[in-house]
Amino acid sequence: MKVKRSLCIASDLSELDRLHDAVAELGEVGDWPPDLVYQVDLVLEELIVNTMNYGYDDDASHEIEITLISDEDVFTVEIIDDGHAFNPLDDAPEPDLDSGIEDRPIGGLGIHLMRVMMDDVHYRREENKNHLTLIKRRNG
């Protein structure tokens, strides 16, 4: 059974709770394993917060559209934002995972978590908006 939830959030951290709740609700409806729901929830937060922090030049509030789709074996998240063009597959530097504690840089892990945790990621820039699709398979 295909179940879809669409949310439009403001570019503000106070919206995160609503986002987490929507992912949790769809996880229950689709009977998804908690570990998988955690990963979808986490990656969504990482990307949204990235956009909020680095996506805009102005202080205005921007809208971010999020669609969550639970299908039989695939959990899909679509994110559309009007921030700077940013393809997380190509435009993010590789993280430093090997330095010792003194030299380990603070930050830069969000996109890495996305790359490792998601089964598929698609990006396109269309009409001055970023369209990002995250795919997590039940048996991925």
């Binding site: 990482e46 504690i101 603070i106 892990l109 969000g110």
Partner: peptide, 18 residues
Amino acid sequence: YISSSGLRVILLVAKSLR
């Protein structure tokens, strides 16, 4: 639940203790 924002805090604390 913890996201990378929480990992950042743990790394800061670990560095300062080190």
